[in-house]
Design a binder for these strands. Structure first.
Length: 297
DNA sequence: AGTGGGACCTGTCCGC
DNA sequence: TGCGGACAGGTCCCAC
């Protein structure tokens, strides 16, 4: 599920249960996901208290009382479910509590919440492109996973001037530049397509063309920065997008997919007022790009 | 520097 | 119904 809005939605679902909770048992059901788990994964979790659950780009970060940070990435197909109460998967559980495919439940954190109640956090990931690891808080920013991560797009720093300077001199297409986590961290295929459509910019246009000769940000750069912030904020407010699986930790669905203007809308009419174009699907760096050739320039 | 391809995995959908 | 191929929200690595 996971671009920034989906990861933030997951964070908001998990935080009320995880923050302040103690990890009673960490059940690791296979040796690896995308990467091997650390050898002492369970031992470094059990008995610790979760002090806060944060997010950086598409990573979830659980601060532990030990000084470690539990780093979690959902890959393409990772999801979390929360089950409250003493029995994890008892027959009487709500439907969402049972996994559609329990064989992909790879990690289960058994918690005692801040209120002293039992709760269970279940990580399911059919494709196993996600991963979890433990990193000391002190060295987190310098860790290879984070050292080269770019700007957080919902922070205050992303504006036209920043975009124009970050993209200056780059001949790579806007689509590729926006997907590059070293520049902006958190965008993925869907929201890049959507932001470019909102800004009426072609995904094929060279990223470096967003700068004017005077060095000031172009109108296009300002439009794009605004579009990125708006589409992400709206998607977060909608609980993210749910394409083919549960997005949220209580089993409910995000609904931003109903607001897609271009993603997965090949051959459908462009939604910009007055535009008679239709949405085209092309492939850029091996991934589908959806855009309107008529109004995106 | 930039691009294209393949790799990592499983599930689903579509056409024959 | 079965089977093969294409495709999927991410990222890394290698060859040109």
């Amino acid at each position: 599920m996971p671009e920034l809005p989906e990861v933030e939605t997951v964070r908001r679902g998990l935080a009320p249960v995880m923050e302040g909770a103690r990890i009673v048992e960490a059940e690791q059901r296979r040796p690896n996901l995308r990467f091997d788990f650390p050898e002492d994964f369970s031992a470094r979790l059990e008995g610790r208290r979760i002090e806060a659950l944060g997010r950086r780009a598409k990573y979830l970060l659980a601060d532990l009382s030990s000084g470690d940070v539990l780093v979690m990435h959902l890959g393409m197909s990772g999801s979390f479910r929360v089950v409250e109460g003493p029995d994890t998967l008892a027959p009487g559980d709500f439907a969402h509590a049972r996994s559609k495919n329990p064989r992909h439940d790879h990690v289960v954190l058994h918690l005692e919440t801040a209120d002293g109640a039992p709760a269970h956090i279940i990580y399911n990931d059919p494709r196993r492109f996600g991963f979890m690891t433990l990193v000391p808080r002190a060295g987190l920013e310098a860790h290879p996973l984070f050292a080269h991560l770019g700007l957080e797009p919902l922070g205050n720093a992303l504006d036209g001037a920043w975009l124009a300077s970050a993209f200056a001199g780059r001949k790579t297409p806007l689509k590729a530049a926006l997907l590059d986590q070293k520049l902006i961290a958190g965008l993925g295929n869907i929201y890049v397509c959507e932001a470019l459509w909102r800004a009426k910019l072609s995904p094929m246009r060279a990223a470096g063309t967003l700068v004017t000769r005077s060095g000031k940000p172009s109108v296009a750069a300002v439009r794009l920065a605004d579009a990125i912030r708006e589409v992400l904020a709206e998607a977060v407010a909608a609980g993210g997008s749910t394409l083919r699986d549960h997005a949220r930790t209580d089993g409910s669905l995000g609904y931003f997919q109903h607001s897609f203007a271009v993603y997965d809308r090949e051959d459908e009419p462009c939604r910009h007022p007055g535009c008679r174009g239709t949405i085209a699907r092309t492939v850029q760096s091996g991934r589908s790009t959806f855009h309107c050739r008529t109004c995106q320039r």
